[in-house]
């Protein structure tokens, strides 16, 4: 079997680790071999975080080699750009359009708002899916559903080794029941959005 590699990146506290666990669970359910690697420790506090998820039979390194990711799920625009060297040529990028402004940017008045990053991504020969994570979170009433919303968009793209149905099942099995409905609502919101703006 081919290896499917997914890199999740964002800023500490955005929920990348749980997202990687859901993908891993779905792969396990299908009887696939899986390796993941997480950023844990000092780098978490507002720093860049990445989770590597690799599914397939012949995997040795838990870390995705450069140009080895089929899909990049970025919780933040600048983090998407930062992690581009991991993306295969012509790979898929799912990116949340809302920027997380670091303290350094606020101190330096850099005016960073993520728009220039999205513009940069749009000019690249990649498959780009921009998700309005903020709107979906507001619709669902919780900033905590960002990770599931991005996973749902990634599942829709077909580049991730997980379907929306498998994602739902993973949520049912892995998350406490009180979080099921808001996360299903996030998947629903992404489905409605992609019907309006189909992923190409």
């Amino acid at each position: 079997m081919m290896v499917n590699s997914c890199l999740l990146c964002g800023v500490g506290g955005q929920g990348t680790v749980l997202a990687s666990k859901l993908i891993a669970f779905a792969a396990m359910e299908k009887g696939k071999r899986i390796r993941t690697a997480e950023t844990i420790g000092m780098a978490q506090r507002g720093g860049c975080v990445v989770s590597h998820v690799r599914i397939g039979d012949e995997i040795f390194s838990p870390m995705i080699p450069l140009k080895g990711a089929d899909i990049l799920i970025a919780f933040e625009p600048a983090e998407a750009v930062r992690c581009l060297p991991y993306l295969k040529d012509g790979g898929t990028v799912v990116v949340n359009q809302k920027a997380v402004r670091p303290v350094t940017a606020s101190l330096a008045d850099s005016g960073y708002d993520g728009k220039e990053m999205i513009a940069h991504l749009k000019g690249l020969p990649i498959r780009l899916i921009v998700v309005d994570g903020d709107a979906i979170c507001q619709k669902c009433g919780s900033p905590r559903v960002l990770n599931v919303a991005l996973l749902a968009a990634a599942a829709k793209s077909g580049a991730l080794a997980m379907t929306a149905e498998e994602l739902k099942y993973a949520i049912q099995k892995r998350l406490p029941e009180k979080f099921h409905q808001i996360n299903f609502a996030a998947i629903e919101a992404v489905e409605i959005e992609t019907e309006r703006n189909p992923i190409v």
Partner: peptide, 19 residues
Amino acid sequence: PSRPEAVLEDLPVRPPVLC
């Protein structure tokens, strides 16, 4: 080995900070 492509310059830096 292929050389990694250059990343856009001026990316915001994110040193870990107090919450």
